[in-house]
Structures are given as structure tokens and as C-alpha cells.
Design a protein around this nucleic acid. Sequence first.
DNA 1: TTTCAATGTTTGACATGCAAAACAAAAGTA
DNA 2: TACTTTTGTTTTGCATGTCAAACATTGAAA
Lengths: 184, 184
Amino acid sequence: MIQDVWKKFDEIELSHSSVHYLMAIHTLVKTQGYARSIDISNYLGLTRGSVSITVNKLVAKGYILEDKNRFFKLSDTGNQLVNAVLSKRRLFERLLSEIMLVNPTVAEEDACKIEHLVTKESSAKILSFMGFYLSDDPRAVAFRKAFSEYNYNCTHQDEQCDVCEIECYFSGDENYFRQENDLS
Amino acid sequence: MIQDVWKKFDEIELSHSSVHYLMAIHTLVKTQGYARSIDISNYLGLTRGSVSITVNKLVAKGYILEDKNRFFKLSDTGNQLVNAVLSKRRLFERLLSEIMLVNPTVAEEDACKIEHLVTKESSAKILSFMGFYLSDDPRAVAFRKAFSEYNYNCTHQDEQCDVCEIECYFSGDENYFRQENDLS
DNA sequence: TTTCAATGTTTGACATGCAAAACAAAAGTA
DNA sequence: TACTTTTGTTTTGCATGTCAAACATTGAAA
């Protein structure tokens, strides 16, 4: 049952890689007003050849629009997709940094990795949680204060500390995983 | 000869796919006591040929041990890795289902997707948060109660509801999935 | 208008990860 | 022992995504 999740990924029309192309166009159009093939290849650090092939596929699939001077922009579908991804990224970034108190740089990187994997359901639930958590509700205010004190006081040196006890589970990672393609 | 040394250094990292092979062996050994090549291919839904090649690579890299009857088990390194991944999966599963109140099935699937992408830092922070959130601390108890009431009461029909307002951002989600006219 | 640099496309190569099928070895069974 | 089935390996081929380099086009400057 769990491996079915990965099978589902294979059935997604857009690859990980393609999503990055769309994100690049979004960013480029936003920052410099336009996106040519060369801009995308500079932005993503890929060769012009690779970009040419993939972008043309995405044009054919209807995610990207190309004008007569070969300037690209996202179609409505492409825009929707990028918005969904960006929303999730921001959501996770905030969840990790503002609530879990993860270092903002790490939070940003992790959010970037997760952004287009998480379902709408989970995203909406997290949003709902954050809405209440960060609200003025006195129980929320009290909790935040209590947690920040707890966090400040716990040096994780304590033998009773749950975190210390369990943290070792995570120790096998970091060095082993390959970044499937370097565009995260 | 000399380049073999370099090859080993080069190949320290594992692909997503390889991680699944390790996870499969872990599960198989745990559930049925052993893991042969055929068991792995049944479990992962891959052909014997594919499994043969990949498993032998992982044996060569030292993640899997093979006995004289070609039964496989994880090496210490392999075990460490699988534990790290499983810990993160469980952590996220619980975060989503117990705290964010995501449907358990969805939580499981999402956790499965992100399990080996999230850093140790974020994982530890989440663990810490959950530790306090689920504790007996009166502020935590009060918050949980308040949140569950909030969640129960909010039908997301309200024009003021933040979730409703922002949820549309996620709506591009469904378009990830394959559609009919596929011009690739 | 001609020339040249920038940009885009095509081609051939490589690596990964998979399937299918031929082949080989091992294990079970008559 | 001989036959059959199961299991493992090798080979071939496919798809994706990349690079490098040859080639084509475009646009601006001389």
C-alpha cells in the first residue's frame, strides 16, 4: 500500500524537473518582466539545448505560452500549478520557521523540497491549524508563550528529554541521499 | 583499479529508488523473516531482472548483506538509513494526523512522500514541538481543547474564514494528474 | 548590406531505472 | 536420476533528462 504512493508519482503528467521550468518562468517574468530560453537556462543552470527541448514540450502540453518573439509566459494552467506549489512552499516555510521554530534557512530549503508533494488536504489542514495557532485567541497566546519558554529552557542535555532520546533515529540521514536533480 | 576507489566515493549516495529497495528488505525481513530477490520484486512490483541488478549494486555499495543462499539483509549502514527514513515517516504521519487533524490515510501517504526529504534539523524541531504540544502542560491542554472546538465550529462557509480565503491557492493541485490528450 | 555575436535547435552521447525475454542455476518432485 | 518449476542473471530496448557540440537563425552594429 505504501509503495503505491510512489507509483502514483509516476502517473503525474509533469515531472519534478518540468515543475522547475514553470517556476523559473514565473520568477523570471515577475523579476525581469520576461523569460526567454536563455534566461531559463541561466536561471536553472542548464544548457540551452536541454531547456529548448523541455520548454517546447511544455508549450505543446499547454503549460507555457510562446509569443512570436519566443518570449515565454505561463498559461492559465501553468499559473494555477505554480501558485499551488508556491502556496505550499510558503505554508511549509512558515509552519517550520514560525511554529516549529526551525532555522529559517533550513525551513526554506525543506519547504522547497516538500512543496509539490503534499496533498491539498494536508495543506488546508495545516493552514487551518496555523490560523488558529497564530491567532489572538488567549489559549493560543498562552500556548505560544509556554512553548517558547519550554524551548528556551530545554537544552536537550536532560536525560529525560524526549527529543534527545529519539533524535538518534534521525542520525542515519544527511550523507546518503542523492539530490535527484539539483534543481530544488 | 584506482578508478574503482573513486567510483566508490562517487557512489556513496543513494537514489530514491534505492531507498525503496532498502525499505522493502527491512519490511520483508520484519514480516516474513527473510528477503530473497523474488520477494523484493513481488513487494515492489518490479521484474526480477531489475531487482537483480539494483540489489547487487547495493550489495557492492555495502548497504545490503547477502548470505551464501542469496538471502538478503540490511547492513548496519543500511539499517541506520532505513531507521532514519522510518522515523521521519512516523513523525510526519503523527504531526499531520494527531496535530493537524489530517485524515490518517492522507497523512500516511503524505508522510511517505516527504519522509526522506526533510532535514534532521526540521525533524528534531517538529519532534520537540510535538513533545510539548501533546504534553500535560495546562497551556497545551487548553490549546488542544480550544483548537478542536475551533475546528469543529468552523464550517469554512464564513466569509471571514482565512482558510476559505486562501484555500484557492491550492486549487492547481488536481492538474498535476494526467489528462486525456497527452501529446508527448 | 554584410558581418558577427547572441540565441535557439538538433544531434549524439551518457546515466538511470525500468520491462521483457532468453538463459542459467537451484530446488523440488516423480 | 530425470524432469519441471522456481529463482536469479544477462541482454536488449525503451523513456527520461541531462550535456556538449555542431548547426541554424536572429538581430544589431559596422
